[in-house]
Nucleic acid binder design. Structure first.
Lengths: 238, 238
DNA sequence: ATATAACACGAACATACGTTCTGGTCAAGG
DNA sequence: CCTTGACCAGAACGTATGTTCGTGTTATAT
């Protein structure tokens, strides 16, 4: 049974013609001829395509310039659909970086890593967008960032609070002065600290200047989980 | 004397043809015919237009599909020039918000406001870009946000450290539970606190849960300077 | 059933349009 | 002067392309 439109609305063929028009124009830089519409929309005759184009024009969806080859354009959806594609381009080239939100970070558990080392798009909680200009321009680091939401008040000595979002990069080593997430496997605790290797000893310095450092004499108890790149606190009014 | 091209580069006519192509396409949604190019570029014959189109194709500036009416498109400048325009649109409509960085916020001085109330683009330190999805979706607030860099350790009880960036909205009043920047004019001090009006008394609650609130019995000593929307900490490795 | 409207087919027509060819002008260089 | 290369005119050709028309099919309503 054929699909027909009742009185208003667009039939199957209207949609096909419209879609052909959009994709063809986008791909080639100019609109299709009526015969090309026929081919791609599986219409058997130019008069059929012309029939639907007339109706689409009547509805104000497209505009036609009569007696002009390829004299068609979509009125509004053209800009909408096109913008979507451009958006990606701008995202890629320019400013935005989409970072997957992988879970929560709590004091009592190690950092939940990206499941596979370089496919960070499985079982994620969502994602956040960050302007690249806010991040250090180290290209190497781009792409292997992930975000965690802080749970609980236990990171207070790192000036990080419940609900904050930390953006980090997976790492197993750190240089002095970098802020890291470490798992202290003797204390069974995750914490965020500035890292300093001092001879054989490791000094973990809280970000909060009112608090003193922790000294760890056995480096094997310190497992570096990642480097903290950025902390974002969204202050929502309750 | 006629302008001719030396060996490389584009002559006057090349440019005219190119410009006609771009403006016509943008205006009509499809490229011009060769004869239309003739008219608008003041060329006397189709063969002349064709002559220049061939050269533009040779140089890789445009692409042509042979034996196809209006089978032309501009290669790079089209996307470049067009992309620039789209970028603004995307910025406006979609994801990025550019927030002016107006100065520093220190404990000993009031908040440095946008110079004029609604032209926040004078004498600024710079600007930062933030993805709108990170901000509350209150459209009303968009556009009157500004950012300040925190100077010194004096905001520690707000879990905000030296070098952090606070994004705020100018305000003179607050509702309970909102984080505000207040100027305590008796103590001569700026501080960031959660605001609670409790009868006649004002309670200023630090974000740091280990610290107790401040109670202020004379509300006139509390001047609300703005609401804190977001705090960003960029952890740079020294 | 009959009428009506939506939809489909195929062919014919006029012309819009890309292509090509012949010939021309004009400046620069040997 | 002659050649050469860049640029210009105009016309002719073939076909790509929008338009139109007559006819046929199928659902829905009366």
């Amino acid at each position: 049974m054929m699909a027909r439109r009742k009185k208003d609305g667009l039939s199957d063929n209207h949609l096909k013609v419209l879609q052909v028009l959009e994709t063809y124009t986008e791909k080639n830089g100019y609109p299709p001829t009526i015969r090309e519409i026929c081919d791609r929309a599986n219409l058997s005759s130019t008069s059929v395509a012309n029939y639907y184009l007339e109706q689409l024009e009547e509805k104000g969806i497209i505009q036609r310039d009569r007696h002009v080859s390829r004299g068609l354009r979509v009125v509004k959806d053209y800009i909408k659909g096109f913008g979507e594609q451009i958006k990606e381009t701008v995202e890629m080239l320019d400013e935005l970086l989409t970072i997957p939100l992988l879970g929560r970070i709590v004091a009592s558990e190690p950092v939940p890593f990206p499941s596979s080392d370089f496919s960070p798009f499985a079982d994620e909680f969502g994602s956040i967008n960050v302007a690249k200009s806010l991040l250090p321009a180290q290209d190497a680091r781009r792409g292997n960032l992930f975000a965690l939401e802080v749970s609980g008040d236990s990171m207070i000595d790192a000036m990080v609070n419940d609900g904050d979002i930390v953006i980090m990069q997976k790492a197993t080593e750190a240089r002095n002065g970098e802020m890291v997430a470490v798992w202290l496997n003797d204390k069974h605790e995750t914490t965020l600290k500035y890292f300093y290797q001092e001879g054989k000893r490791v000094r973990l310095q809280p970000a909060n200047p009112t608090m003193g450092p922790i000294y760890i004499n056995d480096p094997s108890t310190v497992e570096i989980q990642g480097k903290v790149v950025m902390v974002v606190r969204q202050v929502e009014m309750q």
